[in-house]
Design a protein around this nucleic acid. Structure first.
Lengths: 253, 253
DNA sequence: TGTGCAATGTAACATGGGTTATTGAAGCCG
DNA sequence: CGGCTTCAATAACCCATGTTACATTGCACA
């Protein structure tokens, strides 16, 4: 429904022109689709046709083993783009499923061609987004490989919190939080039971208030400490506004 | 020393012209650097200046926590490029270190500008490489989150094996394998002791022959089964040769 | 041709987190 | 209002993997 989150995110990094805004606005209003909660948007094995921009709602990327073990490998929040240029590949190596009701805009190949050829600021911003997503994926590897259950859960909550805040989706110290404990288990590689134990521990320590579909983070710094969270990998300490057009254009490729 | 691995890898996906070859050849012969084993090429916190192409030797990307816990988040083999366009970011969120002696070619921003503007096949091939690397990182997330120690180790060995083969660095059923058990521990999120146990188990099952700096895989299919390995995420089942120039150029952006 | 250090191997013991099971609470729909 | 179904909570028990400690191998280099 809203492309505000995308624009807000990209403008963290690059100042977009009026034309850029118009291009993004057009792209996100054509080919809109709606999905119910808990359905697949794309399935592993399919040929990726378009790139999906999440306009509203939460989704996730996941992989599954034959015996049912399932790993959520990333979350998509409003404003997220599900892989610039995926249509280059022959088939999906993972699935994308919704968590809440979701609306998407399908971005066709032509959109990226046009951006690359004529809108270098958007192109640069999309590269930045791509690089940040790669960094997030690496951080998840770190998270699963080295952090304890408590650290890991705290870390994930910090990440989601900061990404939501960047997208303009937090209000004061709280936000909507539609993930179930099963979702958190699939994302952290922990069992549901242990996620529950871990959340209790975070609650007891006063680090989170999680009830119903609402999460509050009374003291982000303390939660970050608990999760050994270093926000550098989100690359939000942009110099966006300082980047002069010359540099931006040069990087746009 | 050799750009053969890179060309071989990219040509999996796209047929390169004589000019394309020349461009790559030039880029990989200017600005060559050599590194000793076990040193850092770039450190977390530094400003990424160039993109590194690995000409020879093995390296890895790693992240470290203050208390010393260390996670290898990816391996770089000959022909690998360490992040197209990283110089867009303000600072590195991880380090890159050598495992063996390594030689690299530094690819400056201008190289990518030129490729984007004038060599669409290379540009497409680099996008493909970028997407495959993202897929590998997701698979590592899956590996750490869901697979048991045995599966995880077998899976990693399969991946390395296939990537080496693609780069033309296997001979029959064996290859050079310079990783120590400590390296494997850092990459799999297991302790050194347990990596040792796990390798013993793989050896006992006849799935690998690992001695000195040489790995042999007598029966890849069985190793793949043990690792629940599905090679789809490497996207080697390309249709490279079937892609006509029109499609390739369109995708190049 | 030893000597030193890094890498590998192994044993004994400890524990974080998994598994299974059950209960209760909270929606949702007929 | 009542009956399903999903989610959360909690308890009891168990095992895969971590930890510590030490022995062995092997290679680089004096």
């Amino acid at each position: 429904m809203s492309l505000a989150s995308l624009v807000r995110k990209l403008e963290q990094f690059v100042r977009l022109s009026a034309v850029d805004h118009a291009i993004l606005s057009r792209a996100s209003s054509e080919r809109v689709r709606r999905f119910a909660p808990r359905v697949d948007i794309v399935r592993e094995g399919e040929k990726p046709k378009d790139v999906h921009l999440i306009l509203s709602g939460w989704a996730c990327r996941y992989k599954q083993l034959e015996d049912g073990r399932r790993q959520v490998v990333s979350f998509f929040l409003p404003g997220d783009i599900c892989d610039v240029n995926v249509f280059i590949l022959r088939e999906m190596d993972h699935s994308i499923g919704t968590i809440t009701a979701v609306s998407t805009a399908d971005l066709p190949r032509e959109f990226f061609d046009e951006v690359a050829a004529q809108h270098p600021r958007i192109a640069t911003a999309l590269w930045w987004d791509t690089l940040v997503n790669a960094a997030i994926q690496r951080e998840w590897t770190m998270n699963l490989g080295q952090r304890t259950a408590l650290e890991r859960t705290a870390h994930l909550l910090c990440e989601i919190w900061l990404r939501l805040r960047l997208a303009g989706l937090t209000k004061g110290d709280s936000c909507e939080f539609p993930l179930t404990q099963a979702d958190l288990a699939d994302a952290t590689g922990l069992s549901k039971v242990h996620v529950n134990r871990t959340l209790q521990e975070l609650r007891a320590a006063g680090l989170i208030v999680l009830k119903g579909r609402t999460l509050a983070v009374p003291d982000l710094d303390r939660l970050m400490q608990a999760g050994l969270f270093n926000p550098n990998y989100l690359h939000m300490d942009h110099e966006g506004r300082q980047l002069d057009a010359g540099i931006v254009d040069a990087a746009a490729g």
